[in-house]
């Protein structure tokens, strides 16, 4: 399950980067309250990114990086599933 979760976060990261520039507003010059609409999108999006990052630190921090100390076999490539919420305390 840990692998699936890692994949999920990777997709979220890609989406966050992919839409920081609102491509769907390309060529638009709509101005709202003194700033272009696409700039408002960007400001909101960065706020959203902060919230997502914060959630990541609460739920998944350590994923893909912290490992269980018992995993030492050379050919064992995947990280063993870890039970603790923040990615495996040292036993």
């Amino acid at each position: 399950m840990r692998r699936l979760e890692l994949g999920g976060w990777a997709v979220i990261a890609l989406v966050l980067c992919g839409l920081a520039i609102p491509w769907f507003l390309w060529g638009s010059a709509t101005v709202v309250a003194g700033l272009p609409l696409w700039l408002w999108w960007h400001i909101g999006w960065m706020g959203l990114a902060s919230i997502v990052f914060w959630l990541f630190t609460k739920r998944a921090w350590g994923i893909g990086i912290e490992t269980d100390a018992t995993d030492s076999s050379e050919d064992h490539r995947s990280t063993p599933p870890s039970r603790s919420a923040n990615g495996g305390e040292q036993p």
Binding site: C17, A20, M46, A49, F56
Partner: peptide
């Protein structure tokens, strides 16, 4: 003003993600 988008993506998101992916691992 598009420069804000470029800088936001570059520093606010890409670098932040590397902050975790490279930075946290390096720190450990």
């Amino acid at each position: 003003p598009e420069w804000i988008l470029v800088m936001g993506l570059m520093d606010g998101l890409i670098f932040a993600i590397l902050w975790y992916v490279i930075g946290y691992k390096q720190w450990l």
